[in-house]
Design a protein around this nucleic acid. Structure first.
Lengths: 220, 220
DNA sequence: ATAGCATAACTGTGATCACAGATAAACACA
DNA sequence: TGTGTTTATCTGTGATCACAGTTATGCTAT
């Protein structure tokens, strides 16, 4: 490549923060595959900075278990076992379910239209067999809900889970998207928000988070 | 002081990890007060290491919002507003409630005896007006439950919340413990586990996590 | 051709230094 | 005695180096 990797859009106060955000984004979108190794010096060269900010970004990702960092060994993208993935998606279902319940009363008509648009986007991506597009749209769809919960701590904890499950999910979706599996969960969620049914929204979002893991298990 | 601060019991692979664990423990136990400032160089001298491991530990704590780290300003212990604290305790109630529900079937008779002992410990500490003792026993009580959930991710996320709410809780408990407020929640939780009532255990644990915030608000 | 070993390259980790911004202290002036 | 300004100290941040494990490579001997 001719230039250094692009840092986060909003100029961060730290170099570390920008590199962290960039790498986490790559994890969420599945651009970093499970088992891939990340080297401090290599990334430092790529980002055109010294090793210092990179090592702090990697350490931070490792601390939230978005990366694996053994002593004197290269950082690696975790290769989740089905059980580990199930644990993570369980936590995600709980947190996102609660967020959805909170978000119902904060959801404006504009939010709802945006949400509906993203639901059709995910469906289209799935129907046409575009895993990358589906992953990106799915993340935006759920962020649109979680951001309306009005609980910053909750939102950030959920975002951390997406970084941890991202590589695994991208791998799974790539396998599943070719199979003839139904995928109408998002549409129902939009309807629940439209009718302001908090309990239903919670249950559907919980089911949606569990959907990937059950589907993945059935395929094996 | 005549010697360096003691590092974590189990020898960690990193100096950073040990310092991180020590500082987090201090936060959980309320030994670090809200607003207190932590300096990299000062702590490095205290721990008898260079600035390098300390800055990584502080950065990590700041990344999980257990500390506040502004640019070129000293790290500080967050001074939570009642709303922020309520948000955190809400998340804690959700996660610990789910953990309790999972823990019911994993709870052995030995665990149950230990849990009952810790419940009487918290009650005794409260009745005799010993905030530090209450905080420590309360943390152990809830860890005893959360560790039996069998979901490592869930446990660690909850532990992170204790680090964030610790200083605030210690401050609040010190104020509340003198007032003649009842405190029999833990006893009921033990009974729910004894009768293996998962739904009840979940509800009671959820209520217990909300208890501090409601009590704190009532006092104001 | 293959197994075993020595060597080279690569890894994170810790320490040290230079720098710029923020805070506190001290000093001069009214 | 108060107030504004200057100075000094303290702050995190980034870069660079030395070091010790780890991994990969290539060579030698069989």
């Amino acid at each position: 490549m001719t230039r250094g990797a692009s840092i986060d859009h909003t100029a961060p106060q730290n170099l570390s923060a920008g590199i962290y955000a960039t790498l986490r984004h790559r994890l969420i979108l599945g651009e970093l595959r499970p088992g891939a190794s990340l080297s401090i010096r290599t990334l430092a060269e790529e980002f055109e900075v010294s090793a210092m900010p990179v090592r702090e970004a990697l350490r931070q990702l490792a601390s939230e278990e978005a990366l694996i960092g053994a002593a004197k060994k290269a950082y690696r993208v975790p290769d989740l076992s089905p059980d580990e993935a199930a644990n993570l998606f369980f936590v995600r279902s709980i947190l996102e379910g609660a967020a959805a319940e909170l978000a119902v009363e904060n959801m404006t008509a504009r939010n709802l239209r945006n949400l509906a648009r993203l639901a059709t986007e995910t469906d289209a991506a799935w129907a046409t067999g575009q895993p990358d597009r589906y992953i990106a749209a799915n993340y935006k769809f759920h962020r649109c809900i979680n951001d309306r919960a009005g609980n910053t701590s909750l939102e950030k904890m959920i975002a951390g889970l997406y970084a941890r499950t991202g590589p695994w999910l991208a791998h799974g979706v790539a396998d599943l998207i070719s199979a003839d599996t139904a995928q109408d969960g998002h549409r129902k969620i939009v309807d629940a928000f439209a009718s302001k049914d908090a309990a239903l929204a919670r249950r559907l979002v919980e089911d949606d988070a569990q959907w990937a893991i059950t589907l993945y298990r059935r395929l094996r």
